[in-house]
Amino acid sequence: MQFQHKDNGQQGEFFTLNDAGQRIAEISYVWRNQNTIVADHTWVDDCLRGQGVARKLLDVLVEFAREKQLKIIPTCSYVEVMFKRDQSFTDVVA
């Protein structure tokens, strides 16, 4: 699954589209400062539920944070739960 990325310097998102060009999954963030982003929303369409797409989106966001040496503040309930469950994310948790 390929994810697209948009970032305007104030907020950003990773998302994927179906063949008709409609969004079917997304994770968004807001820049808090130059070193920190706030993961504020994750959404997966019903057609993809149970396929691990939310986790793939989170992994892409975490990879982005690691590449840019950012910390993530989770305000999205999914991201918050995953950060508590999976210790592999401790390096990016703000």
Rank of each mutant, 00 (worst) to 15 (best):
E80Q: 12
A20S: 06
D45M: 08
R55T: 09
V92I: 15
V60H: 11
D19R: 13
N18M: 12
N8R: 10
Q4D: 05
E80S: 14
K56F: 01
V92G: 06
F89K: 08
A94H: 06
T90D: 08
G9D: 01
F15D: 06
S77A: 06
F83M: 13
T90H: 07
H41N: 07
S77E: 10
A20P: 00
V53I: 15
V62Y: 01
L48D: 08
F89Q: 07
F14R: 06
L57H: 08
I72F: 09
V60T: 15
V93R: 15
V53Q: 03
H5I: 06
M1N: 01
V60F: 01
R32I: 13
E80A: 11
I37H: 03
K68T: 02
A39F: 05
V79N: 03
R66V: 04
N33E: 04
A20K: 15
N33T: 07
Y78T: 01
A25F: 04
K84C: 08
W43D: 05
L17D: 00
S88D: 05
A20L: 09
G52H: 04
P74D: 05
R55G: 08
D59S: 07
T90S: 13
S28T: 14
Q2T: 05
V81W: 02
R55D: 07
I37A: 09
D7T: 01
E80L: 05
Q87M: 03
V44H: 02
W31Y: 12
K6P: 00
E80R: 12
N33Y: 10
